[in-house]
Design a protein around this nucleic acid. Sequence first.
DNA 1: TGTACATCAGTGAACGCGCGTTCACTGATGTAC
DNA 2: TGTACATCAGTGAACGCGCGTTCACTGATGTAC
Lengths: 202, 202
Amino acid sequence: MKKSRAETAETRRRILEVAAREFRRNGILGTGLAEIMSAAGLSHGGFYRHFASKDQLVAEAFAADMDTFVGSAKAAVEQGEYAILKHMENYLSSERRDDCLGQCPISALGSELSRADGETRGAASRSVRKLIDALTVPGHSKNLASARADAIAALSSLIGAATLSRIVDDRKLSDAILSETKKRLAARRSKSRFKPDTSNGK
Amino acid sequence: MKKSRAETAETRRRILEVAAREFRRNGILGTGLAEIMSAAGLSHGGFYRHFASKDQLVAEAFAADMDTFVGSAKAAVEQGEYAILKHMENYLSSERRDDCLGQCPISALGSELSRADGETRGAASRSVRKLIDALTVPGHSKNLASARADAIAALSSLIGAATLSRIVDDRKLSDAILSETKKRLAARRSKSRFKPDTSNGK
DNA sequence: TGTACATCAGTGAACGCGCGTTCACTGATGTAC
DNA sequence: TGTACATCAGTGAACGCGCGTTCACTGATGTAC
Protein backbone atom coordinates (compact mmCIF):
# COMPACT_ATOMS: atom_id res chain seq x y z
CA MET A 1 0.00 0.00 0.00
CA LYS A 2 2.82 2.39 -0.75
CA LYS A 3 1.57 5.94 -1.35
CA SER A 4 2.69 8.48 -3.93
CA ARG A 5 5.17 11.15 -2.95
CA ALA A 6 2.45 13.77 -2.89
CA GLU A 7 0.25 11.63 -0.64
CA THR A 8 3.18 10.90 1.66
CA ALA A 9 3.96 14.59 2.03
CA GLU A 10 0.30 15.34 2.70
CA THR A 11 0.15 12.62 5.35
CA ARG A 12 3.22 13.99 7.09
CA ARG A 13 1.77 17.48 7.02
CA ARG A 14 -1.52 16.17 8.49
CA ILE A 15 0.26 14.34 11.31
CA LEU A 16 2.13 17.55 12.20
CA GLU A 17 -1.07 19.57 12.18
CA VAL A 18 -3.04 17.10 14.29
CA ALA A 19 -0.12 16.66 16.69
CA ALA A 20 0.20 20.41 17.28
CA ARG A 21 -3.51 20.60 18.06
CA GLU A 22 -3.46 17.64 20.44
CA PHE A 23 -0.30 18.87 22.20
CA ARG A 24 -1.97 22.23 22.74
CA ARG A 25 -5.08 20.53 24.10
CA ASN A 26 -3.59 17.82 26.31
CA GLY A 27 0.03 18.72 26.70
CA ILE A 28 3.06 16.90 25.33
CA LEU A 29 3.26 14.14 27.94
CA GLY A 30 -0.53 13.95 28.02
CA THR A 31 -0.78 13.10 24.33
CA GLY A 32 0.05 9.62 23.03
CA LEU A 33 1.23 8.81 19.52
CA ALA A 34 -1.68 6.42 19.08
CA GLU A 35 -4.08 9.25 19.80
CA ILE A 36 -2.40 11.52 17.26
CA MET A 37 -2.23 8.88 14.54
CA SER A 38 -5.81 7.87 15.11
CA ALA A 39 -6.92 11.52 14.92
CA ALA A 40 -5.00 11.75 11.65
CA GLY A 41 -6.90 8.70 10.35
CA LEU A 42 -3.98 6.31 10.45
CA SER A 43 -2.94 3.24 12.41
CA HIS A 44 -0.28 4.14 14.91
CA GLY A 45 2.39 1.75 13.65
CA GLY A 46 2.91 3.92 10.58
CA PHE A 47 4.21 6.79 12.62
CA TYR A 48 7.85 5.78 12.22
CA ARG A 49 7.66 6.02 8.42
CA HIS A 50 7.49 9.80 8.97
CA PHE A 51 9.37 10.53 12.18
CA ALA A 52 12.27 8.99 14.04
CA SER A 53 10.76 9.54 17.49
CA LYS A 54 8.09 11.35 19.44
CA ASP A 55 10.69 13.95 20.35
CA GLN A 56 11.25 14.77 16.69
CA LEU A 57 7.50 15.12 16.15
CA VAL A 58 7.25 17.45 19.14
CA ALA A 59 10.02 19.69 17.85
CA GLU A 60 8.65 19.86 14.31
CA ALA A 61 5.00 20.20 15.26
CA PHE A 62 5.76 22.96 17.73
CA ALA A 63 7.93 24.84 15.21
CA ALA A 64 5.25 24.63 12.52
CA ASP A 65 2.53 25.64 14.96
CA MET A 66 4.57 28.63 16.08
CA ASP A 67 5.22 29.65 12.47
CA THR A 68 1.47 29.96 11.96
CA PHE A 69 1.15 31.94 15.17
CA VAL A 70 4.04 34.24 14.27
CA GLY A 71 2.53 34.68 10.82
CA SER A 72 -0.73 36.03 12.23
CA ALA A 73 1.23 38.39 14.50
CA LYS A 74 3.22 39.63 11.50
CA ALA A 75 0.05 40.18 9.52
CA ALA A 76 -1.36 42.33 12.33
CA VAL A 77 1.85 44.33 12.65
CA GLU A 78 1.82 45.07 8.91
CA GLN A 79 -1.67 46.50 9.22
CA GLY A 80 -0.56 49.08 11.73
CA GLU A 81 -0.96 50.06 15.34
CA TYR A 82 -4.72 49.57 15.60
CA ALA A 83 -4.52 46.03 14.23
CA ILE A 84 -1.68 45.18 16.61
CA LEU A 85 -3.71 46.21 19.61
CA LYS A 86 -6.77 44.34 18.32
CA HIS A 87 -4.59 41.29 17.81
CA MET A 88 -3.33 41.44 21.40
CA GLU A 89 -6.80 42.05 22.76
CA ASN A 90 -8.09 39.09 20.81
CA TYR A 91 -5.22 37.00 22.18
CA LEU A 92 -6.44 37.86 25.69
CA SER A 93 -10.17 37.57 24.98
CA SER A 94 -12.26 35.38 27.26
CA GLU A 95 -13.62 33.55 24.19
CA ARG A 96 -10.14 32.56 23.23
CA ARG A 97 -9.30 31.54 26.78
CA ASP A 98 -12.35 29.25 26.88
CA ASP A 99 -11.46 27.64 23.54
CA CYS A 100 -8.90 25.03 24.41
CA LEU A 101 -7.80 24.92 20.77
CA GLY A 102 -7.31 28.65 20.49
CA GLN A 103 -4.30 28.73 22.78
CA CYS A 104 -0.97 29.80 21.44
CA PRO A 105 1.66 27.06 21.57
CA ILE A 106 3.74 28.88 24.16
CA SER A 107 1.01 29.40 26.74
CA ALA A 108 -0.35 25.91 26.07
CA LEU A 109 2.97 24.16 26.57
CA GLY A 110 4.99 26.69 28.58
CA SER A 111 6.26 24.61 31.45
CA GLU A 112 6.62 21.44 29.39
CA LEU A 113 8.78 23.18 26.80
CA SER A 114 11.41 24.12 29.33
CA ARG A 115 11.81 20.41 30.15
CA ALA A 116 11.80 19.25 26.53
CA ASP A 117 14.82 17.77 24.76
CA GLY A 118 17.45 19.82 22.96
CA GLU A 119 15.80 19.82 19.54
CA THR A 120 12.53 21.13 20.92
CA ARG A 121 14.24 23.71 23.11
CA GLY A 122 16.14 24.91 20.05
CA ALA A 123 12.98 25.11 17.97
CA ALA A 124 11.25 26.95 20.79
CA SER A 125 14.09 29.45 21.06
CA ARG A 126 14.02 30.19 17.36
CA SER A 127 10.24 30.57 17.47
CA VAL A 128 10.29 32.96 20.40
CA ARG A 129 12.94 35.02 18.67
CA LYS A 130 10.83 35.16 15.50
CA LEU A 131 7.84 36.21 17.56
CA ILE A 132 9.77 38.99 19.29
CA ASP A 133 11.07 40.13 15.91
CA ALA A 134 7.54 40.11 14.51
CA LEU A 135 6.24 42.19 17.42
CA THR A 136 9.09 44.67 17.17
CA VAL A 137 7.59 47.74 15.51
CA PRO A 138 10.40 50.17 14.69
CA GLY A 139 8.10 53.15 14.17
CA HIS A 140 6.50 52.58 17.53
CA SER A 141 9.42 53.56 19.74
CA LYS A 142 12.28 55.99 19.63
CA ASN A 143 14.73 53.40 18.31
CA LEU A 144 15.04 49.75 17.38
CA ALA A 145 16.39 48.61 20.75
CA SER A 146 13.53 50.33 22.50
CA ALA A 147 11.00 48.82 20.09
CA ARG A 148 12.43 45.38 20.75
CA ALA A 149 12.27 45.98 24.49
CA ASP A 150 8.62 46.97 24.09
CA ALA A 151 8.00 43.74 22.20
CA ILE A 152 9.63 41.65 24.93
CA ALA A 153 7.67 43.38 27.67
CA ALA A 154 4.39 43.02 25.81
CA LEU A 155 5.05 39.35 25.09
CA SER A 156 5.84 38.62 28.74
CA SER A 157 2.59 40.21 29.83
CA LEU A 158 0.62 38.39 27.15
CA ILE A 159 2.06 34.97 27.99
CA GLY A 160 1.76 35.51 31.74
CA ALA A 161 -1.82 36.72 31.60
CA ALA A 162 -2.87 33.93 29.23
CA THR A 163 -1.24 31.34 31.49
CA LEU A 164 -2.75 32.72 34.70
CA SER A 165 -6.21 33.16 33.19
CA ARG A 166 -6.31 29.47 32.29
CA ILE A 167 -5.03 28.25 35.64
CA VAL A 168 -7.61 30.18 37.60
CA ASP A 169 -10.85 28.28 38.09
CA ASP A 170 -12.89 31.43 38.75
CA ARG A 171 -14.35 33.28 35.83
CA LYS A 172 -14.42 36.66 37.52
CA LEU A 173 -10.79 36.62 38.61
CA SER A 174 -9.74 35.18 35.26
CA ASP A 175 -11.60 37.92 33.38
CA ALA A 176 -9.99 40.53 35.64
CA ILE A 177 -6.52 39.21 34.80
CA LEU A 178 -7.26 39.40 31.09
CA SER A 179 -8.93 42.81 31.07
CA GLU A 180 -6.36 44.42 33.36
CA THR A 181 -3.53 43.23 31.14
CA LYS A 182 -5.36 44.40 28.00
CA LYS A 183 -5.90 47.81 29.60
CA ARG A 184 -2.21 48.21 30.44
CA LEU A 185 -1.08 47.07 27.00
CA ALA A 186 -3.41 49.59 25.35
CA ALA A 187 -2.22 52.39 27.63
CA ARG A 188 1.40 51.54 27.05
CA ARG A 189 1.06 51.35 23.27
CA SER A 190 -0.77 54.65 22.94
CA LYS A 191 1.62 56.35 25.35
CA SER A 192 4.96 55.15 24.06
CA ARG A 193 4.15 55.64 20.39
CA PHE A 194 6.94 57.77 19.00
CA LYS A 195 5.77 58.71 15.54
CA PRO A 196 2.04 59.31 15.64
CA ASP A 197 0.46 57.05 13.02
CA THR A 198 -2.69 57.60 10.99
CA SER A 199 -4.57 54.45 12.00
CA ASN A 200 -7.71 55.06 14.02
CA GLY A 201 -6.93 54.66 17.73
CA LYS A 202 -9.33 52.64 19.85
CA MET B 1 5.92 -1.38 61.85
CA LYS B 2 3.18 1.04 62.73
CA LYS B 3 4.52 4.51 63.47
CA SER B 4 3.50 6.97 66.16
CA ARG B 5 1.08 9.76 65.29
CA ALA B 6 3.90 12.28 65.32
CA GLU B 7 6.01 10.18 62.98
CA THR B 8 3.04 9.64 60.67
CA ALA B 9 2.36 13.37 60.46
CA GLU B 10 6.04 14.03 59.81
CA THR B 11 6.12 11.41 57.03
CA ARG B 12 3.07 12.95 55.37
CA ARG B 13 4.64 16.38 55.56
CA ARG B 14 7.86 15.04 54.05
CA ILE B 15 6.01 13.40 51.15
CA LEU B 16 4.27 16.69 50.40
CA GLU B 17 7.53 18.61 50.50
CA VAL B 18 9.41 16.16 48.29
CA ALA B 19 6.47 15.93 45.89
CA ALA B 20 6.28 19.70 45.45
CA ARG B 21 9.99 19.79 44.68
CA GLU B 22 9.84 16.94 42.17
CA PHE B 23 6.75 18.34 40.47
CA ARG B 24 8.52 21.66 40.06
CA ARG B 25 11.57 19.92 38.65
CA ASN B 26 9.99 17.36 36.31
CA GLY B 27 6.39 18.41 35.97
CA ILE B 28 3.29 16.64 37.25
CA LEU B 29 3.00 14.01 34.52
CA GLY B 30 6.78 13.69 34.45
CA THR B 31 7.00 12.65 38.10
CA GLY B 32 6.06 9.17 39.26
CA LEU B 33 4.86 8.25 42.72
CA ALA B 34 7.69 5.73 43.06
CA GLU B 35 10.20 8.52 42.45
CA ILE B 36 8.57 10.73 45.08
CA MET B 37 8.33 8.00 47.70
CA SER B 38 11.87 6.90 47.07
CA ALA B 39 13.11 10.51 47.42
CA ALA B 40 11.20 10.64 50.70
CA GLY B 41 13.01 7.50 51.86
CA LEU B 42 9.99 5.19 51.67
CA SER B 43 8.86 2.25 49.57
CA HIS B 44 6.23 3.34 47.13
CA GLY B 45 3.48 0.99 48.29
CA GLY B 46 3.05 3.04 51.46
CA PHE B 47 1.85 6.05 49.54
CA TYR B 48 -1.83 5.16 49.91
CA ARG B 49 -1.64 5.22 53.73
CA HIS B 50 -1.35 8.99 53.34
CA PHE B 51 -3.20 9.94 50.16
CA ALA B 52 -6.16 8.57 48.24
CA SER B 53 -4.62 9.22 44.82
CA LYS B 54 -1.91 11.02 42.93
CA ASP B 55 -4.43 13.75 42.13
CA GLN B 56 -4.95 14.42 45.83
CA LEU B 57 -1.19 14.63 46.36
CA VAL B 58 -0.86 17.08 43.47
CA ALA B 59 -3.55 19.36 44.86
CA GLU B 60 -2.17 19.31 48.41
CA ALA B 61 1.49 19.58 47.47
CA PHE B 62 0.82 22.47 45.11
CA ALA B 63 -1.27 24.31 47.70
CA ALA B 64 1.39 23.89 50.39
CA ASP B 65 4.15 24.90 48.00
CA MET B 66 2.22 28.01 47.00
CA ASP B 67 1.61 28.91 50.64
CA THR B 68 5.36 29.06 51.17
CA PHE B 69 5.77 31.15 48.04
CA VAL B 70 2.95 33.52 49.04
CA GLY B 71 4.47 33.77 52.50
CA SER B 72 7.78 35.05 51.13
CA ALA B 73 5.92 37.58 48.98
CA LYS B 74 3.94 38.77 52.02
CA ALA B 75 7.14 39.14 54.03
CA ALA B 76 8.64 41.34 51.32
CA VAL B 77 5.51 43.47 51.08
CA GLU B 78 5.55 44.04 54.84
CA GLN B 79 9.10 45.36 54.57
CA GLY B 80 8.09 48.10 52.17
CA GLU B 81 8.56 49.21 48.61
CA TYR B 82 12.29 48.58 48.35
CA ALA B 83 11.94 45.00 49.57
CA ILE B 84 9.08 44.36 47.15
CA LEU B 85 11.15 45.44 44.18
CA LYS B 86 14.13 43.40 45.40
CA HIS B 87 11.83 40.41 45.79
CA MET B 88 10.59 40.76 42.21
CA GLU B 89 14.09 41.30 40.87
CA ASN B 90 15.26 38.21 42.70
CA TYR B 91 12.34 36.29 41.22
CA LEU B 92 13.58 37.24 37.75
CA SER B 93 17.29 36.80 38.45
CA SER B 94 19.30 34.63 36.09
CA GLU B 95 20.59 32.64 39.08
CA ARG B 96 17.06 31.72 40.00
CA ARG B 97 16.19 30.87 36.40
CA ASP B 98 19.17 28.49 36.23
CA ASP B 99 18.21 26.79 39.49
CA CYS B 100 15.56 24.31 38.52
CA LEU B 101 14.45 24.06 42.15
CA GLY B 102 14.10 27.80 42.57
CA GLN B 103 11.10 28.09 40.29
CA CYS B 104 7.81 29.24 41.69
CA PRO B 105 5.08 26.59 41.46
CA ILE B 106 3.08 28.59 38.93
CA SER B 107 5.80 29.11 36.36
CA ALA B 108 7.05 25.56 36.90
CA LEU B 109 3.65 23.93 36.34
CA GLY B 110 1.72 26.61 34.43
CA SER B 111 0.39 24.71 31.47
CA GLU B 112 -0.08 21.48 33.40
CA LEU B 113 -2.18 23.18 36.06
CA SER B 114 -4.79 24.32 33.56
CA ARG B 115 -5.32 20.67 32.60
CA ALA B 116 -5.35 19.34 36.17
CA ASP B 117 -8.42 17.90 37.88
CA GLY B 118 -10.98 19.98 39.78
CA GLU B 119 -9.32 19.76 43.19
CA THR B 120 -6.01 21.02 41.86
CA ARG B 121 -7.62 23.74 39.77
CA GLY B 122 -9.49 24.89 42.87
CA ALA B 123 -6.32 24.90 44.96
CA ALA B 124 -4.52 26.78 42.20
CA SER B 125 -7.26 29.39 42.06
CA ARG B 126 -7.16 29.97 45.79
CA SER B 127 -3.37 30.22 45.69
CA VAL B 128 -3.33 32.73 42.85
CA ARG B 129 -5.90 34.81 44.67
CA LYS B 130 -3.80 34.74 47.85
CA LEU B 131 -0.75 35.76 45.82
CA ILE B 132 -2.57 38.68 44.22
CA ASP B 133 -3.85 39.73 47.64
CA ALA B 134 -0.33 39.53 49.04
CA LEU B 135 1.06 41.68 46.22
CA THR B 136 -1.70 44.25 46.58
CA VAL B 137 -0.08 47.20 48.37
CA PRO B 138 -2.81 49.69 49.29
CA GLY B 139 -0.38 52.55 49.94
CA HIS B 140 1.22 52.07 46.57
CA SER B 141 -1.67 53.23 44.38
CA LYS B 142 -4.42 55.76 44.60
CA ASN B 143 -7.00 53.23 45.80
CA LEU B 144 -7.45 49.55 46.59
CA ALA B 145 -8.84 48.61 43.17
CA SER B 146 -5.92 50.29 41.49
CA ALA B 147 -3.44 48.59 43.84
CA ARG B 148 -5.00 45.23 43.02
CA ALA B 149 -4.82 45.99 39.31
CA ASP B 150 -1.14 46.83 39.75
CA ALA B 151 -0.63 43.49 41.50
CA ILE B 152 -2.34 41.58 38.70
CA ALA B 153 -0.31 43.35 36.02
CA ALA B 154 2.95 42.79 37.88
CA LEU B 155 2.15 39.12 38.43
CA SER B 156 1.33 38.58 34.75
CA SER B 157 4.63 40.11 33.73
CA LEU B 158 6.54 38.08 36.32
CA ILE B 159 4.97 34.76 35.34
CA GLY B 160 5.29 35.46 31.62
CA ALA B 161 8.92 36.53 31.82
CA ALA B 162 9.86 33.60 34.06
CA THR B 163 8.14 31.16 31.70
CA LEU B 164 9.70 32.62 28.56
CA SER B 165 13.16 32.88 30.08
CA ARG B 166 13.13 29.15 30.81
CA ILE B 167 11.81 28.12 27.41
CA VAL B 168 14.47 30.02 25.55
CA ASP B 169 17.64 28.04 24.98
CA ASP B 170 19.78 31.13 24.44
CA ARG B 171 21.29 32.81 27.42
CA LYS B 172 21.51 36.24 25.88
CA LEU B 173 17.89 36.38 24.79
CA SER B 174 16.77 34.84 28.09
CA ASP B 175 18.73 37.43 30.07
CA ALA B 176 17.23 40.19 27.93
CA ILE B 177 13.70 38.97 28.71
CA LEU B 178 14.45 38.97 32.43
CA SER B 179 16.24 42.30 32.59
CA GLU B 180 13.74 44.12 30.38
CA THR B 181 10.86 42.93 32.55
CA LYS B 182 12.74 43.91 35.72
CA LYS B 183 13.40 47.36 34.26
CA ARG B 184 9.74 47.91 33.47
CA LEU B 185 8.57 46.68 36.85
CA ALA B 186 10.99 49.04 38.60
CA ALA B 187 9.90 51.97 36.43
CA ARG B 188 6.25 51.23 36.99
CA ARG B 189 6.59 50.88 40.74
CA SER B 190 8.54 54.09 41.22
CA LYS B 191 6.21 55.98 38.89
CA SER B 192 2.85 54.83 40.15
CA ARG B 193 3.68 55.18 43.82
CA PHE B 194 0.96 57.34 45.31
CA LYS B 195 2.16 58.07 48.80
CA PRO B 196 5.91 58.57 48.72
CA ASP B 197 7.43 56.17 51.24
CA THR B 198 10.61 56.52 53.25
CA SER B 199 12.35 53.36 52.12
CA ASN B 200 15.54 53.86 50.14
CA GLY B 201 14.78 53.66 46.42
CA LYS B 202 17.04 51.59 44.22
C1' DT C 1 5.76 2.79 -24.05
C1' DG C 2 5.90 -1.61 -21.62
C1' DT C 3 7.68 -4.81 -18.30
C1' DA C 4 10.16 -6.49 -14.06
C1' DC C 5 11.45 -5.35 -9.81
C1' DA C 6 12.88 -2.69 -5.75
C1' DT C 7 10.98 0.55 -2.66
C1' DC C 8 8.41 1.93 1.06
C1' DA C 9 3.67 4.00 3.20
C1' DG C 10 0.61 1.99 5.91
C1' DT C 11 -1.37 -2.12 8.80
C1' DG C 12 -1.91 -4.63 12.91
C1' DA C 13 0.12 -7.18 16.36
C1' DA C 14 3.61 -7.48 19.58
C1' DC C 15 7.55 -5.85 22.61
C1' DG C 16 9.38 -4.21 27.16
C1' DC C 17 8.68 -0.74 30.42
C1' DG C 18 6.98 2.37 33.89
C1' DC C 19 2.85 4.03 35.48
C1' DG C 20 -0.95 4.38 39.32
C1' DT C 21 -3.04 1.31 42.25
C1' DT C 22 -3.89 -2.92 45.19
C1' DC C 23 -2.84 -6.31 48.54
C1' DA C 24 -1.11 -9.73 51.99
C1' DC C 25 1.88 -9.23 55.46
C1' DT C 26 4.78 -7.31 59.58
C1' DG C 27 5.23 -5.54 63.95
C1' DA C 28 5.30 -1.25 66.76
C1' DT C 29 1.74 1.89 68.53
C1' DG C 30 -2.35 3.14 70.80
C1' DT C 31 -6.40 1.64 73.41
C1' DA C 32 -9.39 -0.84 76.61
C1' DC C 33 -9.72 -3.03 80.79
C1' DT D 1 0.64 0.37 86.12
C1' DG D 2 0.28 -3.90 83.46
C1' DT D 3 -1.71 -6.90 80.00
C1' DA D 4 -4.30 -8.27 75.67
C1' DC D 5 -5.60 -6.88 71.52
C1' DA D 6 -6.99 -3.97 67.61
C1' DT D 7 -5.02 -0.66 64.62
C1' DC D 8 -2.44 0.79 60.92
C1' DA D 9 2.33 2.82 58.86
C1' DG D 10 5.30 0.84 56.03
C1' DT D 11 7.15 -3.21 52.97
C1' DG D 12 7.59 -5.54 48.75
C1' DA D 13 5.47 -7.89 45.19
C1' DA D 14 1.95 -7.94 41.98
C1' DC D 15 -1.94 -6.06 39.03
C1' DG D 16 -3.71 -4.16 34.56
C1' DC D 17 -2.90 -0.56 31.47
C1' DG D 18 -1.09 2.64 28.10
C1' DC D 19 3.09 4.22 26.59
C1' DG D 20 6.91 4.61 22.75
C1' DT D 21 8.90 1.60 19.70
C1' DT D 22 9.63 -2.53 16.59
C1' DC D 23 8.50 -5.76 13.11
C1' DA D 24 6.66 -8.94 9.52
C1' DC D 25 3.73 -8.20 6.07
C1' DT D 26 0.94 -6.03 1.99
C1' DG D 27 0.60 -4.04 -2.29
C1' DA D 28 0.69 0.35 -4.92
C1' DT D 29 4.35 3.45 -6.49
C1' DG D 30 8.51 4.70 -8.67
C1' DT D 31 12.56 3.18 -11.29
C1' DA D 32 15.53 0.78 -14.55
C1' DC D 33 15.88 -1.21 -18.80
